[in-house]
Amino acid sequence: NIFRVLASIFILLHKIVQLKSCSGISFKSQMLYLLVYITRYLDLPWTRSSYNFIFKVLFISSQCYIIYLMARAYKPTNDPNLDTFRVEFLLGFAFILAILFPVQYTFLEIAWAFSIWLESVAILPQLFMLQRTGEAEAITAHYLFALGTYRALYIPNWIYRYYTEGPRKVDTIAVVAGVLQTLLYSDFFWIYYTKVVRGEKFKLP
């Protein structure tokens, strides 16, 4: 799973740097992902496993770099007129669910739940943008596929852990949000499978 999200980050960085352009990438989605990583990894200084620590740092720093590329270095290639999804709704959705059903009423747990819910919908500005343009460069489609499968692959992992480690190891919030996120992606996955995998251009019907 970890390698999927790293793959998605490297594909995106490769796309931006190689093509000297961030066209087709939603700045709003990228900002939401930064917020997701920051609110989820607030425990960074106390992370026990060095493996997790390294990945948390990698995720936050690479996301900051992506934002820097989009906001500074390749700003002229970023078209805000196509990126018009109202993110207030997504922030509100994540905030309300985080406040209503946290694992515990502590700041850290509410922030964690917020980040999980926000991640599940953070791709919507990107998918909305895709819908407006109707097509995407192959590399953008690969990026979205890697990002989407990251969370989708957690689902078989959770099922496996449910049977090997028992129900107490399963996080209800993470599972529900992970399934929601995968459902939001399902349309995209289908077009990716029927078009891009067969070498055609990613184009909406």
């Binding site: 997790n52 515990q104 850290l108 964690w112 957690y154 190891k169 996080d171 209800t172 993470a174």
Partner: peptide, 10 residues
């Protein structure tokens, strides 16, 4: 359910 600093998922 594991607390934030005990979670092994990222």
């Amino acid at each position: 359910e594991a607390k934030v600093d005990e979670k092994d998922e990222l």
